[in-house]
Design a protein around this nucleic acid. Structure first.
Length: 592
RNA sequence: GGGGGCGUGGUGAAGUCUGGAGUUCACGCCGGCCUGUCAAGCCGGAGAUCGCGGGUUCAAAUCCCGUCGCUCCCGCCA
């Protein structure tokens, strides 16, 4: 039906008789000659409809409208004179049309197919099939496809086997909410959709596979965000007789290949590494954006003997005083006070700002409470130059780091940086405490501790063989060396407060599997949506997902999620609870 | 569960703070003119439940209450 892609034609094709098919992007009707930007999946080329040259009826030509699906046959020719369009890859040529067929007309569009106009996202999703015709969306889909292809190339070259694991699995009452699927054959029972292929890939290691990967769809029934959907795609992989270095090495190979493919950039390896502790201390987060400095500095010693009560009180109660040098922000007094309110909004008691003056000294609401030695100490510790804004927070240490980490991101304007800063964060703690003070697994309970005895003696400070891949302040994925010793696994469950009976009931089948010669193994999962979104400079992952859900978990195009017939529920042995039925009835009354 | 932003012809915005005739701009749509444009140009035209419901007022896009939708964030996301 077509001999060429519209976007592929070049000066070398001049003279060729071509048949093209695609959509009318724009139409420029000069009364006689009509120019049409013919768009297909490969790009855009200008075609020229001239009633003197082509036999097509004038009526047909003038009836051409936006987004009509047409096919044309014609001859590629150089554009006359200085008519080339340097903005178009095909801009040196055009196609003189001999014959045109309207394959399929289009009604007037609900919105223009155009990268220049931002259309309300609900509308875009309702007509996603039109939205996908926009060049930026087409390009995002292609980038995603190339990413996955590059990943497969790397994994195949490294000898990994691509294996599919089931998506109808047993729910494990840990971690995120499971997406549930009712079973008809076993009424009252439910499958869960996988949050990750974790246990299955470990079973594959026990099964002797040694190197596995999968482009895996994963599901988590939690609230959506710019970087979170109910379902998302990961490059999931695992290797036997492997340790952390093998995994990080593989991650570098994948990241380098994908980055080269999408950005044409050659990354240096090895990637920088920070321990979790360093990341928290220097950037106030476990996923630092290292495209800019502005690191957090501990000032507690500077204020060891301070007379400033707000600070001395914090130190006396075991807290910490830290600051960042935000550089010359160019903020007015009210702008600086705005940062203080922002810090309070984030949960700080307050934030002290100090502007470094030309003559030395500081302009700050608290300067008069601080000694000359303290002021000098701050300036030195933060490397203050005239005009620099210093921001200080005094509070419990964890709070200080979190607040400064967040403020750092907000005043650091990382979006202005074009580079790609990949980074490994390693040596995560095994456990963290939840709000009740109980230990919970920071990563997941199958993560190997660095030292088992240390973990038993001081679980709060135990380090695990877990690591994250971070890109520009986004967590791209997590992995770990897994526990392959049933005794260690039992110890972890014990620390988590999971009784033997509980562990047996939830994971008994897995614990048993560990007892049959389990090889040491380790792995990782990279979030493909996030990776492609960042590399494509997309503001959220919906831009790189063809049919995403809205924040309330719906699809405006197909109307999912939707109610089902009573018969379907009956067959499944399910009935909505009374309060749900009441809500339905209320909705119907309101004309929902 | 909580906090913020947004909702105005088909699309995008201005108007809302400080109530006074559905006013304005760009694109699209319809009609006309036009043979070298490429976001074509020029002329004319149509197109609105100002998300929805209620309230205050002589008068509501504008103020108040409620509600729905979209979005950003916190919680949550082993």
């Amino acid at each position: 039906m077509k001999t060429h892609g519209a976007g592929t034609l070049r000066a070398a094709d001049v003279g060729s008789e071509v048949t093209l098919a695609g959509w009318v992007g724009r139409r420029r009707d000069h009364g006689g000659v009509i120019f049409v930007d013919l768009r297909d999946a490969s790009g855009i080329v200008q075609v020229v409809l001239n009633p003197e040259e082509a036999p097509a009826s004038e009526q047909e030509l003038s009836s051409l409208r936006m987004e009509f699906c047409i096919s044309i046959t014609g001859t590629v020719r150089l554009r006359p004179g200085d008519m080339a369009n340097p903005d178009l890859p095909t801009g040196d040529v055009e196609v003189a049309v001999d014959a045109m067929t309207v394959l399929s007309p289009s009604e007037t569009l609900p919105f223009q197919i155009n990268d220049r106009i931002e259309v309300d996202e609900a509308r875009r999703l309702q007509y996603r099939y039109l939205d996908l015709r926009r060049p930026s969306m087409t390009e995002n889909l292609r980038a995603r496809s190339r990413t996955i292809r590059a990943m497969r190339d790397v994994m195949d070259a490294l000898g990994f086997m691509e294996i599919e694991t089931p998506t109808l699995i047993a729910s494990t009452p840990e971690g995120a909410r499971d997406m549930l699927v009712p079973s008809r054959l076993r009424k009252g029972n439910f499958y869960a959709l996988p949050q990750s292929p974790q246990l299955f890939k470990q079973l594959l290691m026990i099964g002797g596979v040694e190197r596995y990967y999968q482009i895996a769809r994963c599901y988590r029934d939690e609230d959506l965000r710019a970087d979170r959907q109910l379902e998302f795609t990961q490059l999931d992989f695992e290797g036997s007789f492997w340790g952390q270095e093998d995994v990080l090495d593989t991650l570098e190979s994948v990241s380098i290949k994908v980055t080269k493919e999408l950005r044409g950039v050659d990354l240096d390896r090895p990637f920088p590494r920070l321990t979790w502790h360093e990341a928290m201390e220097r950037y106030g987060t476990d996923k630092p954006d290292i495209r800019f400095g502005m690191e957090i500095v501990d000032l507690s010693e500077t204020f060891g003997a301070t007379g400033f009560k707000a600070f001395s009180g914090v130190l006396a109660s075991g807290g910490s005083i830290r600051g960042i040098n935000a550089g010359p922000l160019g903020l007015s007094r009210s702008g600086l006070d705005g940062l203080s309110s922002r810090a309070q909004e984030l949960g700080a008691k307050g934030l002290v700002w100090m502007v470094t003056e030309e003559a030395g000294g500081f302009r700050s609401p608290v300067a008069k409470f601080l000694s000359a030695g303290e002021l000098d100490g701050i300036g030195a510790a933060l490397g203050a130059k005239p005009g620099d804004v210093l921001l200080l927070v005094a509070d419990e240490m964890r709070t200080v780091l979190e607040i400064l980490g967040q403020i750092r991101l907000e005043v650091g304007q990382p979006d202005g940086h074009d580079e790609l800063a990949y980074l490994f964060v390693v040596d995560f703690p095994v456990f963290e405490r939840n709000e009740d003070g109980d230990f919970v697994a920071l990563h997941h309970p199958f993560t190997a501790p660095v030292d088992v005895r240390e973990m038993s003696e001081d679980p709060g400070h135990a380090i695990s063989k877990a690591y994250d891949l971070v890109l520009n302040g986004s967590e791209l994925g997590s992995g770990s060396v897994r526990i392959h010793d049933p005794a260690v696994q039992a110890k972890v469950f014990e620390t988590l407060g999971i009784s033997d009976e509980d562990a047996e009931r939830r994971f008994g089948w897995f614990l048993e599997a560990l007892r049959y010669g389990t090889p040491p193994h380790a792995g990782f999962a990279i979030g493909i949506d996030r990776l492609v979104a960042i590399l494509q400079n997309a503001p959220n992952i919906r831009e790189v997902i063809p049919f995403p859900k809205t924040q309330s978990g719906g699809d405006p195009l197909t109307g999912s999620p939707a109610r089902v017939e009573d018969d379907q529920l009956r067959e499944l042995g399910i009935e909505p609870r009374p309060e749900v039925k009441a809500e339905w009835a209320a909705g119907e009354e309101a004309g929902d």
